[in-house]
Design a protein around this nucleic acid. Structure first.
Lengths: 132, 132
DNA sequence: GCAAATTAATGATTTATTCAAG
DNA sequence: CTTGAATAAATCATTAATTTGC
């Protein structure tokens, strides 16, 4: 198998970067002329056809929308998010990095909280860096 | 040596195993509640905070994608490294092909094109779409 | 064999995007 | 057009592996 027998277009990193940059710049559904132009430009970096460009934009747009939708769904489900507990006490500070037993999980005391935060906010509570 | 100041979290083997198992099972971006739960579970095996869990998933996901992407990129480069002759003839043969030339002037303007896309027809006809 | 020096992994932060609401 | 919410990418910083000289 010397080379893949022209299965389908494989974007080179440069092509991909340029396409993404264009998308980021607002290009979403280029018309024939624009596609032609883009194709000619990208052809410098490797084999490409107009239909590849067309399909790329179609797919990229669709998939971004799809991703967004799922994200929104998740966000709505997160309405009942809980909050970070601050109780870091009671930690076995003796030898934390020592493994001994594989026991069943205690399954935590469920504490509820209102915020929808994924965790970041509460996480960012600064801890003074190496101020020894 | 008084004690390691433990500037940052060091996952115990059990914690790591559980986290990886969760990741393998599909957990990728747990929300606050899930992070809480996981944290409480893992706290049995050693000191841990919610932010540690959050960061672990973030980093793990990002780095796995990064590794994959690098591999794919390399493969692509390798694939099209040979067929580099059929670029535009007008191009000077100075830089044949290297990853050096990253960004080229995006000729296609970012102007919000009218949302017409008559490109399809002309495009996915086998050949001779427009330019000849 | 062992530490100092160097490199690779990876935890923690910051920055840049995205889309939708207002 | 601005802002809110949420990442994901890029980056910084520290720990673990490893290499190297003795």
């Amino acid at each position: 198998m010397p080379q893949t027998p022209s299965t389908r277009w494989c974007p080179t990193p440069e092509q991909l970067m340029i396409l993404e940059e264009m998308y980021r710049s607002g290009v979403r559904t280029p018309n024939a002329a624009e596609i032609q132009q883009i194709t000619a430009h990208l052809a410098y970096y490797g084999r490409i056809e107009g239909k590849n460009v067309f399909y790329w934009f179609q797919n990229h747009k669709a998939r971004e929308r799809q991703r967004l939708r799922r994200r929104l769904c998740a966000r709505h489900q997160q309405q009942y998010a809980q909050q970070q507990q601050q109780a870091t006490a009671a930690a076995p500070a003796s030898s934390p990095n020592s493994s001994a037993t594989l026991l069943a999980p205690p399954a935590a005391g469920g504490s509820s909280a209102p915020c929808v935060h994924p965790a970041v906010m509460q996480l960012h509570h600064h801890h003074h860096p190496y101020a020894t």
